[in-house]
């Protein structure tokens, strides 16, 4: 446990799957050598295999307090960073030359099953689920590291890997039930989301949050009773952790998704939910039922013209209100180390 904990709430009703967060993170953090295949931030279509492919079946985390075995995801399961055959084939008059990833037709990528989802037409269903490191209160990765290279900062609860101590044993990768840790084969170190620590330290929201055009992500300290995080997690109880049964106590929370009504056999609308509640319960636990009821009731209240603190909070008319104290613009931070190679995460 840290003294304080920063947290993030991700609103799945506002997420439009545009992956601007993914690109913001990619260009900010994971373009260094050995990191080309890393996606510290992903957005997956659910239901689906997710990233890495089939991560929910890879084990890790705890059950009844006991660490569970897990397996290492392979790079191909994260999606290979395809290179394209520009120089071979792109621009000639050869009618057979086709621009495509080098190394043959791919059969998996980090966003391969985008907009596919489940159900049967017209009762199809899907939604987007962005993921980063959950900066857990009980990090399975930290417990699994024999080098003690993983630590949780007291001042904000951000979980970091000290790369000076890391020897690349990858026990953390097995132990993390969310498979949010990556291995850098060039440096021989494990690496993961830093919660944009260098930005956050300067009062600038994480890149995935500030650059999100869907205004999906709330930031703040969990114990800040006036902040949106506290309201959504504790007061209204509409923000839920993903897979609470992994017992790591994530600090990223989700507003569960609403969906248009499903249809009966004739194609007429029913009162049935389109997304099977059992599926949502498998992701967010039983509390999702009440959370969805609350969201529907509050929306109905707004429709009747009644006030709703919950809806106002979720709308967040003033954009920077999403970010609590982390409301500065990166361009105004003179000394910000925006491009510091390789070493972030070691400075405690």
């Amino acid at each position: 446990m840290s003294d304080r904990q920063v947290a993030m709430v991700i609103d799945l009703n506002k997420c439009i799957g545009c992956q601007t967060c993914t690109i913001a993170c990619k260009t900010m953090w994971t373009s260094k050598e050995g990191m080309e295949g890393m996606w510290w931030n992903t957005v997956s279509t659910a239901p689906g295999e997710g990233t890495p492919k089939g991560w929910e079946q890879m084990g890790g985390g705890f059950r009844d307090g006991k660490a569970q075995p897990g397996r290492l995801p392979k790079q191909s399961e994260f999606g290979d960073p395809w290179e394209f055959n520009y120089e071979e084939t792109l621009f000639g008059g050869d009618p057979h030359a086709t621009l495509k990833p080098s190394g043959g037709d791919p059969d998996w990528g980090t966003n391969w099953d985008e907009d596919v989802g489940g159900g049967e037409y017209p009762n199809s269903f899907f939604f987007y689920i962005p993921r980063i490191c959950n900066h857990c209160t009980k990090p399975a990765c930290m417990e699994a590291c024999p080098r003690g290279a993983i630590f949780k900062r007291d001042e904000d609860g951000i979980v970091l890997i000290n790369e000076d101590h890391c020897r690349g044993f990858r026990f953390c990768q097995e132990a993390c039930p969310y498979k949010e840790i990556y291995y850098n084969a060039v440096t021989g170190k494990s690496q993961k989301c830093l919660f944009c620590l260098p930005r956050m330290e300067e009062g600038v929201a994480t890149a995935c949050s500030r650059q999100c055009p869907g205004r999906v992500r709330f930031l703040g300290f969990l114990d800040d009773e006036d902040g949106p995080i506290h309201k959504l997690v504790y007061d209204h109880k509409v923000a839920l952790p993903l897979h609470p049964e992994y017992e790591t106590e994530p600090n990223v929370f989700y507003i569960p998704p609403l969906a248009p009504p499903s249809f009966d056999a004739e194609g007429n609308p029913t009162e049935e939910d389109r997304i099977p509640i059992t599926y949502l319960m498998s992701l967010f636990g039983g509390e999702v039922v009440e959370a969805l009821e609350t969201l529907k009731a509050e929306k109905a209240a707004r429709k009747r013209g009644e006030p709703s603190e919950l809806m106002d909070t979720l709308i967040s008319r003033n954009w920077v209100d999403l970010f609590g104290p982390f409301n500065k613009s990166p361009k105004d931070i003179e000394a910000m180390r925006l491009m510091e190679g390789g070493q972030l995460g070691t400075a405690q």
Partner: peptide, 25 residues
Amino acid sequence: EAISKSACSLHEAAHSTRDQMDLFE
């Protein structure tokens, strides 16, 4: 390589799996 189908790029980024911006940096 931006023009000819058989050309070989003179840019390191075209020959490396590294991210081009990281290489530039």
